[in-house]
Design a protein around this nucleic acid. Structure first.
Length: 477
RNA sequence: GGCCCCAUCGUCUAGCGGUCCAGGACGUCGCCCUUUCACGGCGAAAACACGGGUUCGAUUCCCGUUGGGGUCACCA
């Protein structure tokens, strides 16, 4: 019977570097990290890895913060900026050196390159063996630039019990003496991550698969410092439809692009990302609160999964249908104003909201939703697309004239009333309803597809409807 | 190439030795609904990579092959 060990409270962290956009794959890793903390009632921290000062502008940082907030991922406490912690990183490097766990290495980059080239030539794996490793503190210090390297173990092996990958073992002979401090005295990423994670009290390091190999080397710092080791969970990367690393061409867009350019709802992206690489029985539609309740790392797949835009769109369509009319109208107003080239008035937004019930089921993205709504506000004469022109040819003008007459005679302008009128026109002309309805649709919307034609009539209103029909009708024959 | 990891329908996945001639979802294809397009309903095609073991019995366990991915910096 082993003693019951008091589990450490879970502390996770999301540590993006501000490159100008929040990569969709990183967003998913952040989601998993956040979900894990929330599920276990722990803390979810945020650290901005802004050591590359050139790229780390405030704008680039805001993109990440906006993206996270939009997705509904919050964090506990203030965000930590790695750049502000350089002093502490250097301090740890020096402590390591004082303990004899790190050393000054005076090898020049030319020497390194030569050693690497030699290894390459002999077709054997390159493993750095610095002659300065075992010189001890009394070694003559040449007047030359140096780096601080970690004295990594060479015997034995290192194992990680990864929450996603399982137990992974690597021979220590594979590990080299990584650089802790560069010759200009600045800390490397390897050092900074470990020091920050430790100082922030991170218990669970949940990050991309691409860091798995780093974990073994980073563990060396924890061991050398005598710090408690974190639990690791390495999440597989997201791949493109072709199985290769997700590239710009097929979806490696920033979260902001999904929102702004494609018109994806946050709950749809949340749901999609959650189900990509993770499953919970047959459940497909999963809310945030349900996700928190159900999520755990053991159900995360070990292999990379491919990004599927079609499925995201399907999910988005689902959430559009669920969204309130007011919210949707508000979301597409900017898109409509952009394509119309003018601002929408209050009464127009009211009409837009009223139209949502009919427009919603026809759209998979906000872009499509806006496109489906634009006919409501187009000035006369409409621009008719090719299919609409086809519908308006032949007998159509004559039938439109009859419909015009029947509609003009109506006392009340409702869907049932207009339907009765149009049906009677079709009957009188001995044609199918579609023979009248389709030209009507073309005349009213300029398109061959739209919501139900009687709803369109009501949405447009009597005056505008009749005016649009008049544009295209001939004489009653 | 060395090291590490992975492998169920086209895609995301369920399956944790027998309940699987493998379930769900997206996509695809039919049919229904219908004034168009959607939505919705019904249905179909579609997978355990291959080869050895272990076992009374393997999609499930082990090994190999093949395929895929990750990583090998004074970048993060």
């Amino acid at each position: 019977m082993s003693a019951q060990i008091e589990p450490r409270a879970v502390v996770t962290r999301f540590a993006p570097s501000p490159t100008g956009f929040l990569h969709i794959g990183n967003a998913r890793t952040g989601l998993f990290s956040w979900l894990y903390a929330r599920h276990h009632g722990g803390r979810s921290l945020l650290r901005i890895e802004d050591t590359d000062k050139a790229r780390s502008t405030q704008a680039a940082i805001d993109v990440i913060l906006d993206g996270l907030q939009w997705l509904g991922l919050d964090w506990d406490g203030d965000a930590i900026f790695q750049s502000e912690r350089v002093g502490r990183h250097v301090e740890v490097a020096q402590a390591l050196q004082a303990k004899g766990q790190a050393y000054r290495c005076y090898m020049s980059s030319a020497e390194l390159a030569a050693a690497r080239a030699a290894a390459e030539k002999e077709r054997r794996p390159f493993r750095l063996e610095s002659p300065w490793r075992d010189c001890g503190p009394d070694a003559p210090a040449p007047d030359a630039p140096f780096v601080i390297r970690l004295k990594a173990p060479r015997e034995g092996e290192t194992a990680i019990d990864d929450l996603v990958q399982g137990r992974v073992t690597v021979s220590n002979s594979e590990l080299d003496d990584m650089v802790l401090l560069r010759s200009d005295g600045t800390p490397t990423y390897m050092l900074a991550v470990v020091v920050d994670d430790h100082d922030m009290g991170v218990t669970h390091v949940i990050r991309g698969d691409d860091h798995l190999n780093n974990a073994f080397r980073q563990l060396g710092i924890y061991k050398a410092m005598g710090w408690p080791e974190p639990v690791y969970a390495h999440i597989p990367l997201i791949h493109g439809p072709d199985g290769a690393k997700l590239s710009k061409r097929h979806g490696a867009l920033g979260v902001d692009a999904y929102r702004d350019e494609l018109g994806i709802l946050p709950e749809a992206l949340f749901n999609y990302l959650l189900r990509l690489g993770w499953g919970h029985g047959d459940d497909e539609i999963i809310s945030q609160s349900q996700a928190i309740q159900w999520f755990d790392l053991d159900a995360v797949g070990k292999g990379p999964s491919r990004f599927d835009m079609k499925k995201l769109e399907n999910l988005n369509g689902h959430y559009i249908r669920e969204a309130s009319d007011g919210r949707l109208a508000g979301l597409i107003v900017p898109r409509l104003e952009h394509s119309l080239g003018r601002a929408l008035g209050g009464d127009e937004i009211e009409r837009l909201t009223a139209a949502m019930a009919e427009l919603k089921p026809r759209a998979k993205t906000l872009d499509e939703l806006a496109d489906g709504a634009v006919f409501l506000f187009k000035p006369r004469p409409l621009d008719y697309d090719e299919k609409a022109e086809q519908l308006l040819a032949g007998d159509a003008p004559r039938l439109l004239a009859r419909a015009y007459a029947a509609l003009t005679a109506l006392d009340e302008w409702t869907a049932p009333a207009t339907e009765a009128a149009v049906r009677s026109v079709a009957e009188a002309a001995a044609v199918k309803l579609g023979q009248v309805a389709q030209p009507l649709r073309a005349a009213l919307t300029g398109r061959a597809t739209s919501p139900g034609i009687f709803d369109v009539l009501v949405l447009l209103g009597r005056e505008e409807s009749l005016a649009r029909i008049a544009e295209r009708m001939g004489s009653e024959g």
